[in-house]
Amino acid sequence: MTEHRVSARPAAQRRAPQRRGPGAGAQRRYAIVKWALLAALIAYAVLVVGANSARNVDFSVIRSAIAAAPGVSGLNALDENGFQERMDASPTPCEDWLMFGSDDIMDVSEVMVAKGNAAALDDLESALQRRLEAQLAVFRSYGVNQKDLLEGARVLRRGDYLFYAVGESADQWEDAFLACIR
């Protein structure tokens, strides 16, 4: 009968490669590299969180800043119905919100800021993506300027805020918003 030898060592040990590695020195070097990597990860995470966070300010501050920004005076402040009509979503789940838009259907300029919890902002962000897609579908074939503005739409999430802007002055509206929450 064939004699089968069975190793007494545990399976994990048997499978472990029995290489004569560079030894303790190399292990120490690997450990140092990994600690350095962890420190870099923590610094990176702090930076990312810092860049995404927003100061909790009274919404009236943002409202005033956006209203005073260049080009907004030519737009209308929208009420809840106007918001719902444009966004196909209700702003009520949000804590506070503002939206300015033009009455002229050929003018795609609009700016919106909403404050709320993540779920409310998620829903609103989806709604405004749909809004952008719908507007693009309308203007793609003939509205070259409108199409460019829509493709340059600004959508930002910072802390509890969602910002959205389309227009010639969208960059300045964004700056006005960011100045409030930084």
């Binding site: 290489r19 560079p22 690997y30």
Partner: peptide, 24 residues
């Protein structure tokens, strides 16, 4: 890139470690 570096070094570290408790 962190994920790349971390897991790359971990692979080398595992390759160089022989003791099962250390590997674990």
């Amino acid at each position: 890139l962190f994920s790349v570096a971390w897991n790359y070094v971990t692979g080398l570290q595992l390759g160089a470690a022989a003791r099962p408790s250390r590997r674990k």
